[in-house]
Amino acid sequence: MKKEDTVKLISAEGFEFVIDKKAAMVSQTIRNMLTSPGSFAETEHGEVTFPEISTVILEKICQYFYWSLQYASGKETEFHIEPELTLELMMAANYLHT
């Protein structure tokens, strides 16, 4: 995988998730970060830090990105969410415009 095709997402605790740009862009917010005409730090380094999103949630989010791509391409499966994560996950979704 080429470096340009991936992006590194960093959680509040400092965990790094390297995922496909294509998957990350499921989030409208991340999409804007990576495509905005001015060269912001995120675009230049290919990494985004989320100081308000915990590792557990960010992991779930990354899973969701890939699930969403599959779902969009016609593979209709269930996406399981543990009840205790639900609230935080929804707030992150609002933030990420997903």
């Binding site: 917010t29 804007n32 970060m33 001015g38 060269s39 912001f40 730090a41 995120e42 830090t49 933030y95």
Partner: peptide
């Protein structure tokens, strides 16, 4: 002079 700015921070 935008290159140093963090999008995430501003957005947040």
């Amino acid at each position: 002079n935008a290159s140093g700015l963090s999008f995430e921070e501003l957005y947040r």
